[in-house]
Design a protein around this nucleic acid. Structure first.
Length: 278
DNA sequence: CGGTTACCCTGGATGC
DNA sequence: TGCATCCAGGGTAACC
């Protein structure tokens, strides 16, 4: 679902459709997604503003308005996503960007309404808000920084990788995929990884996330779609997530689905042969 | 403060 | 057929 690779795919899809365009208005269909800003303020900031930039920070979509009209931040969380053509299902539309000259629309849909939309007065305020709850981006962190941060916690490596304050962008699916590629057991203590393991982990993070971006992310159960409503292709070639009992692509051992400490309710998939606890 | 858990939400799948 | 229960994954507040 919207983890780093899916949000990056969204942002890449949004850019050509919205950058440089002027907004006629921003229509808020569900105020409960707004956090720290009123619908009036958001509408006021958007009316007549030009979109200068759309970037990803962690799992945030950050839309910059030109001429100091502020920054709109959308966190798609579980089921949020953008459409640059009219979505088939219209009952989950929560926000609409109305563009001018030529007129067009960009829809933000969110079935479960867990997403959040906020507005910051300046880039500095947005950056401040982000850094309060986020560490370095998973695609930008150096091997040294990754090792240093992991060495400071005794939690399991999987919950550590999913901690946005430690490292921004990785969620449940890619944590499993990365750990399988790095051949590390998900419950191994983060501060008990060898230097070689940190090397493999750092490489796996870059490799898995970049590959998933190439394939436009992971779709299942009708949840995540690209801005054109297409499914991402990553889960057609992934290693462990959702592959319970299927043979490991590396060693043929059946993949195990389990639950681990520090991650209530969420499933963890791993290969018991490639990923030994010690 | 580090670490863990409940809860927010909805819809599709599953169970009886 | 109908109704209850479970499950998903991201993030935050509350707790020990």
């Amino acid at each position: 679902m919207p983890e780093l690779s899916e949000v990056e795919t969204m942002v890449r899809g949004l850019r050509p459709a919205i950058c440089g365009r002027s907004l006629r208005r921003i229509e808020v269909l569900d105020r409960s997604l707004l956090h720290g800003c009123s619908a009036r303020r958001l509408a006021g900031a958007g009316r007549g503003a030009t979109v200068s930039e759309v970037v990803r920070r962690g799992k945030w979509v950050v839309v910059t308005l030109a001429d100091h009209r502020g920054i709109i931040v959308i966190q798609p969380r579980m089921t949020g996503g953008f459409w640059i053509k009219k979505p088939e299902q219209t009952n989950h539309i929560r926000l609409v960007f109305h563009l001018d000259k030529p007129r067009a629309m960009i829809w933000y849909c969110d079935t479960r309404r867990l997403g959040r939309i906020s507005w910051f007065a300046s880039a500095e305020e947005a950056a401040e808000g982000f850094s309060q709850s986020h560490g370095p981006d998973a695609l930008e962190i150096t091997r040294q920084e990754l090792g240093a941060r992991l060495s400071r916690t005794g939690r399991g490596i999987k919950p550590a990788l999913m901690d946005q304050k430690l490292l921004a962008g990785i969620g449940n699916i890619y944590a499993d995929e990365v750990l399988h590629m790095a051949r590390i057991h998900p419950e191994r203590a983060a501060n008990a990884l060898s230097a070689v393991m940190i090397d493999r982990l750092h490489t796996a993070i870059q490799t898995v996330l970049e590959r998933a971006i190439c394939l436009e992310g992971s779709s299942f159960d009708g949840a995540y779609r690209t801005v054109l409503g297409l499914e991402g292709g990553f889960l057609a070639e992934n290693s462990v997530y959702g592959r319970e009992s299927l043979p490991c692509r590396a060693c043929s051992e059946p993949i195990v689905k389990t639950r681990i400490a520090g991650l209530i309710g969420r499933p963890t998939y791993f290969c018991p042969r490639c990923q030994k606890p010690r």
